[in-house]
């Protein structure tokens, strides 16, 4: 499956990745090669095979309801790029 320029742009947008126009052909080539590799899967008939999401046949463990965490805002926000009054700041979100 060969990807085109517009496919790459779409995917990059979905993934929120800025890529330069100049790099698009290289991405298209590499991604197409990877998809060609992946295409080999289609040769196998998997009808009736249960999809395996997890390596182990285990079930979800449940945690008792209870507050175990304390306020660490100052600690966590030391590594934040932009904060004010305890809030994380982002460019204006328009609703």
């Amino acid at each position: 499956m060969a990807l085109e320029r517009k496919d790459i742009k779409n995917i990059a947008h979905l993934a929120r990745l800025a890529i330069s126009e100049a790099d698009i052909p290289e991405y298209a080539r590499n991604l197409s090669n990877i998809l060609a590799l992946v295409e080999q899967m289609q040769a196998v008939d998997t009808s009736g095979v249960t999809p395996m999401a997890h390596p182990l046949d285990a079930v979800q463990r449940l945690r008792e309801d209870g507050v175990t965490e304390t306020d660490q805002r100052d600690h966590f926000q030391q590594i934040a790029p932009a904060v004010e009054d305890g809030l994380y700041l982002v460019p204006k979100v328009i609703e």
Partner: peptide, 10 residues
């Protein structure tokens, strides 16, 4: 959405 110097607070 109150203004934080033109930013939104989360």
């Amino acid at each position: 959405h109150e203004d934080f110097n033109g930013m939104t607070g989360i």
